[in-house]
Computed example of a mutant assay.
Amino acid sequence: MERMIRGMNTVSGEVPITAKLRMGVRDAKPNAAKTIERLAFGGEEQRDLLGAPGCAAVTLHGRSRQQRYTRSANWSYIAECAAMVKSYNQKKDDLTDTAKEPDASTQANSADGRMYFLGNGDCYSHVDYFDHVDNAKVDSVMIARGAMIKPWIFEEIEKGQYFDKSATERLGYVEKFCKFGMEAWGSDELGIGFTRRFLLEWLSFTHRYIPIGVLEHLPPSLQERPPAYWGRNKLETLLASDNYKDWIKISRSEMYLGPAHPGFNFQPKHRSNSYEMEAEG
């Protein structure tokens, strides 16, 4: 990841042009490859006009919009697109050999001038990360839900090992979240209200974490739906609850946000939080 970040530093003073895509709209009709091709080099008319359209980086989420989170991400398709991007980088000079000087704002502003390609979808451990880098041949992996559920995943990737965070350590992340929230929005009633709602949205993800110490197998899967279980202590059990009232209890400590208003209710707004979610038609 450090190599990825260093390589994408701007060298011309322009803001890098990046894009994040899904495979397509419908399951059976992935069209990301065509979009990536246009992002990388544009059409012949664009090359004549701009010299060499370009993109600093593209991130591909291995799902369609229709699919959402009902099935695992398609890393085979991501690998196909990664190979295509690699071929583009190899033949870039031939495709952009025009008489017109390229417009700097359209160029891939990485240090080496090439377009980087990232994969995205279901990365939940250092094993997943290195498997995707080695086998799908992506430059790096974008991690979203995995980091929402397990924010120390980047530490695991850096060290190349699992960390069995205790319930107390996990609660420490909640304390930091509340601290940062009140720094951003204020410690008055309005600021605490903002912090509480964002915290509960986050807890609607973190409750899905299954401690390494109680897992039946490794690596863990982001798509698995475990049965209810008792943690190794009461706090660990509370952190695993899928009841939003328990999430409010976690945020209620005087140490953090204080008690919620008696009439306060909460429902996660992000559809991916629901285990019973159906794919869009």
Rank of each mutant, 00 (worst) to 15 (best):
R65S: 06
A111N: 11
I210P: 02
A279E: 15
M4E: 08
D48M: 11
E169S: 14
Q67R: 15
C55F: 01
R208G: 03
T59D: 03
D48L: 14
K100V: 11
G231E: 05
N135K: 15
C178V: 13
T70N: 15
S76H: 15
F194Q: 09
K179I: 07
S187Q: 08
A260F: 00
Y244W: 10
R71A: 15
K29I: 07
N89W: 05
Y229M: 10
F198I: 06
G119E: 00
S64V: 09
R65T: 10
M142F: 07
L218Y: 06
S140Q: 06
I250P: 00
K20V: 11
Y88K: 04
E101F: 09
S241T: 13
H270T: 14
N273Y: 06
P268Y: 06
T70W: 13
A82W: 01
H270D: 14
W247G: 00
I192T: 11
G43M: 12
A73G: 06
R63Q: 04
A99G: 13
M23Q: 10
T237C: 12
F264C: 05
G258W: 01
P151E: 04
F130A: 09
S221M: 08
L21C: 04
I153K: 00
H217Y: 10
S12G: 12
I192D: 00
S251N: 07
F266T: 04
L50C: 09
M4R: 06
F117I: 08
G13C: 09
S87T: 11
K137T: 09
C123L: 04
A82Q: 01
N135R: 15
L60W: 02
L49E: 12
W152V: 10
C55T: 13
A184W: 07
K245Y: 08
S110H: 01
H261W: 07
M277P: 08
L203I: 09
S272G: 14
R3L: 06
S274N: 12
W202P: 02
D246N: 14
V138D: 00
I36K: 00
A104T: 08
E14W: 02
T10I: 12
Y124G: 03
E183L: 09
P53A: 05
G51Y: 00
M1Y: 05
N109Y: 00
F180W: 10
G13D: 05
S274G: 10
Y244M: 02
A73R: 02
F266A: 04
D164H: 05
E155P: 10
I78D: 00
G113E: 02
F41W: 09
G54W: 00
I5D: 04
N9Q: 14
M4I: 06
R65Y: 12
Y129S: 03
E280R: 14
A32V: 05
T96Y: 06
L222D: 03
Q66V: 12
K100W: 07
D48N: 13
A73P: 03
S105M: 09
R225C: 05
H217W: 06
E236Q: 15
G7W: 03
P53G: 04
N89F: 03
K249R: 15
H61Q: 06
A136P: 03
E276S: 13
Y256E: 05
E2N: 09
V11H: 03
P262Y: 06
L39T: 02
C178K: 03
V138K: 01
D122T: 12
T195H: 01
D112A: 14
A82Y: 01
R65E: 07
I157W: 01
V25M: 13
